[in-house]
Computed example of a mutant assay.
Amino acid sequence: MPEQRRRFSAQFKAEAVQMVIETGKPIAEIAPDLGIHDGTLGSWVNAWRREHPDPDQHTGPVEAARVKEMEDELRRLRMENEFLK
Rank of each mutant, 00 (worst) to 15 (best):
W48G: 00
R5E: 10
D56F: 05
H52T: 05
G60V: 05
E22L: 08
E73C: 07
I36K: 04
D56K: 08
R50E: 12
K13C: 04
G39A: 08
V20D: 00
E80Q: 12
N81W: 09
D33N: 13
A47N: 12
T40S: 06
E51M: 09
Q18V: 01
R78M: 11
P32S: 08
R78F: 10
V67M: 12
D56T: 09
R76A: 13
P55E: 05
Q11V: 08
S43W: 07
V45I: 02
T23A: 04
L41N: 04
P55K: 01
L84P: 03
L77E: 10
E3T: 12
A64Y: 01
R5K: 11
K25W: 13
K68S: 14
E3G: 10
E69W: 09
N46Y: 13
H58F: 14
E29Y: 12
Q4V: 13
P26K: 11
G39N: 09
M19H: 04
I21Y: 02
D38V: 06
L34M: 01
T59E: 14
Q18H: 05
E22Q: 05
G42I: 02
A10E: 12
I21S: 06
N81Y: 10
A16L: 04
E71R: 14
E82R: 15
R7D: 05
R66N: 07
K25N: 13
